[in-house]
């Protein structure tokens, strides 16, 4: 067991982990931050995406010990200061960008990373950026639309929801 310390959603946390403890397991089981989901075991589905030092990563494909000293943000850390939804989260609700909700945390974290890099992404840029996030419910239409809307683009021309 090794000692690990990091900042998660602005709070300092520390604990003992095994070498094999994945960041996703540390978040879910040790910190009980169960919003980070695990939907596959081949690093494909993206339900587990969190931000480590501001970059989107798959928490199921990184060891907890590798996040030593890092700033980690999970879906629980997304939101406005007064506990409301961020523009991305609000757009997902407004445009019905989620159904069962399981892929949603990863989608939101990936979308937030995209908008950080590209403030006004095109439809094609959004679809490309979502390559590592699988949704089985929405057919992606409303996710893409929500991200466009969150970036301040007019989506009224996109087929109605």
């Amino acid at each position: 067991m090794t000692q690990v310390a990091m900042t998660v959603n602005g709070k300092s946390v520390s604990g003992e982990v095994e070498g094999r403890t994945l960041l996703s397991d540390y978040l879910r089981e040790d910190l009980r931050l169960t919003g980070t989901h695990v939907g596959c075991d081949t690093s494909q589905c993206g339900a587990c995406v969190v931000h480590v030092d501001g970059k989107a990563v798959k928490a199921c494909t990184m060891f907890a010990a590798e996040a030593e000293g890092a700033q980690v943000t999970t879906i629980e850390g997304m939101g406005t200061a007064d506990g409301g939804l961020t523009a991305v989260q609000q757009a997902f609700q407004d445009h019905h960008g989620l159904q069962c909700g399981f892929c949603t945390p990863g989608m939101v974290m990936t979308a937030a990373a995209l908008l950080e890099e590209t403030p006004k992404p095109t439809e094609a840029e959004i679809r490309d950026y979502l390559e590592g996030n699988i949704c089985r419910c929405t057919g992606y239409h409303n996710i893409v639309k929500a991200i466009m809307a969150a970036s301040g683009q007019d989506v009224s021309a996109v087929a109605a929801e």
């Binding site: 995406v49 798959k58 494909t61 390559e131």
Partner: peptide, 9 residues
């Protein structure tokens, strides 16, 4: 290569 999250690691 891969996807954005994979490229970050």
């Amino acid at each position: 290569i891969g996807d954005p999250a994979v490229r970050n690691r």
